[in-house]
């Protein structure tokens, strides 16, 4: 554990809390992509199966548990409790276009051809693109509420901080994992356009609105 990883994990946790609070307080999931949330739930469920096989630390187990439970809770709020507020007309991204390539890639490029390892690899690939339906939804409606922008900023920062963690670990521990690193870089690049809008607009008190 180093400061970059801890900051990344906390940023990830913050994103999840912001999203749940937004939905709970406003009693609405307007502007949130259910498709992205389904993909994140698949990511956590396929990656954290090692909860049953490997113990790393109390911290590790606790965070995995929180991510799995909160992603299922988010799905419950979106698709059951506040279903009427779900913006499904704009949330039209076809997730099979992400799922199928990630399955194929995980079968082809992995560290070890075992069930758990291929599922882990699949989850890493899928996480890197899981935000696309959300970004697609924002681009379709042309705007995002500030609370949604804060959520996206925290979620995007997490993998960016992990890149610093990976640089640190390579230097300090000679440890590296190319699959995680390359997917993490792809994931962070997908947020760059959003980061730019967030810094130039949302932080100056303006609403995130895309140019017409």
């Amino acid at each position: 554990m180093n400061v970059f990883r801890l900051a990344g994990d906390l940023s990830h946790l913050l994103a999840i809390i912001i999203l749940l609070l937004k939905i709970w307080k406003t009693r609405s999931c307007a502007g949130i992509s259910g498709k992205s949330q389904i993909l994140f739930a698949i990511v956590y469920l396929s990656r954290y199966l090692d909860l049953f096989t490997t113990f790393i630390s109390v911290y590790n187990t606790f965070m995995k548990f929180v991510f799995v439970v909160s992603s299922l809770g988010t799905l419950y709020l979106m698709y059951l409790k506040f279903r009427a507020t779900y913006d499904h007309n704009h949330d039209s991204f076809r997730i099979e276009f992400l799922l199928v390539p990630c399955v194929v890639l995980a079968l082809l490029i992995n560290h070890d051809f075992t069930v758990l390892e291929v599922l882990w690899t699949f989850s890493i690939y899928l996480e890197s693109v899981a935000i696309l339906p959300q970004l697609f939804l924002v681009s379709k409606t042309g705007e995002a509420e500030s609370i949604t922008s804060h959520y996206l900023f925290a979620l995007g920062s997490y993998r960016a901080l992990y890149i610093l963690n990976w640089i640190y670990r390579y230097v300090a521990e000679s440890h590296y994992d190319l699959i995680a690193i390359i997917a993490g870089i792809v994931q962070t690049i997908l947020y760059c356009d959003f980061f730019y809008l967030y810094i130039t607009k949302v932080l100056k008190g303006k609403k995130l609105q895309l140019p017409a």
């Binding site: 994990d9 090692d50 490997t54 590790n60 965070m63 995995k64 590296y176 994992d177 699959i179």
Partner: peptide, 10 residues
């Protein structure tokens, strides 16, 4: 690459 038998990151 560095083969990982266990993934210690989240």
């Amino acid at each position: 690459s560095n083969k990982e038998s266990q993934h210690d990151e989240l």
